[in-house]
Design a protein around this nucleic acid. Structure first.
Lengths: 214, 214
DNA sequence: AGCAGTTTCGAGTATGCACTCGAAAATACC
DNA sequence: GGTATTTTCGAGTGCATACTCGAAACTGCT
């Protein structure tokens, strides 16, 4: 975080280059933030198209129109850039999430919206599976993310259960995991054959099976 | 990222000059087939652990106890080796598939069996997602495989439907795609947190929702 | 204008990659 | 035993990789 701008919640590992200055905020900070954004955007696209291992600094630098070394000034390691991309993705989807009423409406709506963002889906699907490999930098990110989503859905299901709107015999935790898994698995099939898979419809089917017919 | 080179001293015996092969069956052909099998086996493990791009000839050769160039004699290109691994995987799972009666029994049983083969799951999950990227050599393999599995399940569901054993309002094609997606998505979560995800139980839950309570 | 700090990059390092080439060693067949 | 074939590997090629180093160019503040 070159410019000490308070904006960024970029945590931990600062640049290690030994300097220790008092809130250095010389000019050009705005430019820096802009650059970072465009770099993250390009990296998002490249990682989505090629995956993490196969995606290169060079290609990202080319897309953003700067040298590979210039890029390294902002993100000194590849995994740092990856994590920035993932957190940026969170912001995007959260921003685009009005989180409306109802599990069904919310989820199906989100799935429909995703159909116009294949890059986001691809990034997510590819990195998610890649992260199960040994020592992948995004592994803990995905572990945390899955746990978070599962508990959110499980809580929503329990609330619906309390209202008697869930079909009897449903285990909220397992149903939450299933919902997440179903979504992700369908997205992979959709990436391979977009015209043959209707992710949103399948999710709606599942949710309607879960809920009491009213 | 430097991914420190780790040697896997599989067969620590020196192999430069005197070589007493214990098997040394009749004819070069037999030896060749044997070699191919062990190479495919090692490649299976490496691709499962690292993915296709990140997995290297060198590491595979180390595990099988031969030089990288020796390996190239059997599989002149990397993608050829990949496809051999995938087809070998098909053989394995087909062999281990008694394909018993009943969708539920069959699927749940297979899922349970898979729990003891994390390497096979990892290979499948990682390569499957990786294959959605541009120009991946396994892409058409997975497209074909998914189509095949979906039609199989859809047919089974339609047969059950004819017997009146499926809950009304189920679309067999979508349910088949959902079943496959659910399975794959759950497996990814299971790879990340094996102790928190019960793939077989979730699949059973889903199948019971699909079928008429009898 | 002078300076502190930021941004950029050219050149270079060390490594790894898939793959080629040519030849030696092992083996099979007669 | 001699010869053809298969199997193996050492050495090398060309390229890509992440990352380092050091310095130039730029920026805005005083």
């Amino acid at each position: 975080m070159p410019t000490g701008r308070k904006q960024a919640p970029r945590q931990s590992t600062e640049r290690t280059t030994s300097e220790h200055r008092p809130v250095a905020r010389r000019g050009a900070g705005a430019k820096s933030a802009e650059r970072r954004r465009s770099i993250v955007e390009a990296a998002h696209a490249v990682f989505a198209e090629r995956g993490y291992h196969a995606g290169s600094f060079q290609e990202i630098a080319d897309r953003v129109g700067m040298s590979q070394t210039g890029l390294l000034h902002y993100f000194p390691t590849k995994s740092e850039l990856l994590l920035a991309v993932l957190h940026r993705r969170d912001e995007i989807t959260v921003d685009a999430a009005p989180e409306p009423e109802g599990l069904i409406q919310g989820i199906v709506g989100r799935a429909r919206a995703n159909e116009s963002l294949p890059g986001v889906i691809e990034l997510y699907s590819v990195l998610c599976a890649e992260s199960t490999t040994e020592g992948h930098p995004a592994r803990s990110y995905f572990v945390g993310r899955f746990a978070e989503i599962r508990t959110t859905y499980a809580a929503e299901l329990r609330a619906l259960q309390a209202e008697g709107r869930v079909r009897p015999g449903i285990d909220p935790e397992r149903a939450a995991a299933s919902l997440v898994g179903l979504w992700d698995g369908l997205q992979v099939q959709w990436l391979l054959e977009p015209e043959r898979i209707d992710v949103a419809a399948c999710l709606r089917d599942y949710l309607e099976l879960l809920l009491e017919p009213s």
